[in-house]
Amino acid sequence: MYKTIESSGISKSFGPTKALDEISFSVNESEVFGFIGPDGAGKTTLFRIITTLLLPDKGEIKVLGLDCKADYKKLRKNIGYMPGRFSLYQDLTVEENLNFYATVFGTTIEENYDLISDIYSHIEPFKKRLAGKLSGGMKQKLALSCALIHKPELLVLDEPTTGVDAVSRSEFWDMLAKLRQHKITILVSTPYMDEAMRCDRVALIQGGKILAIDTPQKIREGFSKKLFSARASEKYKLIKALKQFHNTLTAYPFGDSVHVTFMNDTIDDSLYDHLKTSGINDAYITETEAGIEDRFLELMNKPE
């Protein structure tokens, strides 16, 4: 299969900080590939290398079959890039922004309207409004339209959902899903674990290293222990008590419950006894399915 991106052993340092450490991965044509990791994991650096804005210190990378260094001019014509801060001109209107990006990439709004129509139609009623006056969700849609206007083969979205409310975030992922039909490969980064489920494949990234690459489902299944969810009315006490229990491997707050793993993967009366002596009488513990975040935690704790 043709690989849209193929990279091996990419490293990049800024002074003493190693932003990327031997990153290797490949992205297939027309897939939605997600880089999931916290701030400072190296996502932006990696995306800047992919978009030819930075050169790696070490390693090989080919994007759309082209070399990022030698063929950067050719490559830049075929990439749609949306940086972390939405790259919009706040003092231009919605329409002017879109028009500008269209001309810069040598096209017109009309020519590729079908590609952006799903997205742009949401904001078209406000096309005379200054981009600076749009809400976060609308800015995000406009920035996406601008990045798509020249029909790129590869769309690179750096944290497109940061600072946007849940409804807009959800809409945004729906739009990306629809773009698949246009055979555009989409690379997206996010610090939010739950968004991993909307990608075809994801790479978990932390401290400049890739922890895992797979489909979201397979990554969840990679969780090596049985996971239990514990609830009690006094959560802080519960966490402390669980952590003190001799059989506990990990105990982390997780939303309104506590996710716990045990060395022997089972719960018995000794646990409830322990909780009772710690003053917790209403503990309710069930087995639960691990999510991406659970697996991420597990991978972070794994000694190298």
Binding site: G37, P38, D39, A41, T162, P191, M193, Q206, K235, Y236, I239, Y252, P253, F254, E293, F296, L297, M300, N301
Partner: peptide, 16 residues
């Protein structure tokens, strides 16, 4: 927002 999962847990424990 944006912090790694472990720090996040530690942070919530501080909040609790």
């Amino acid at each position: 927002g944006g912090v790694d999962p472990i720090t996040r847990r530690q942070f919530w424990e501080m909040i609790y």
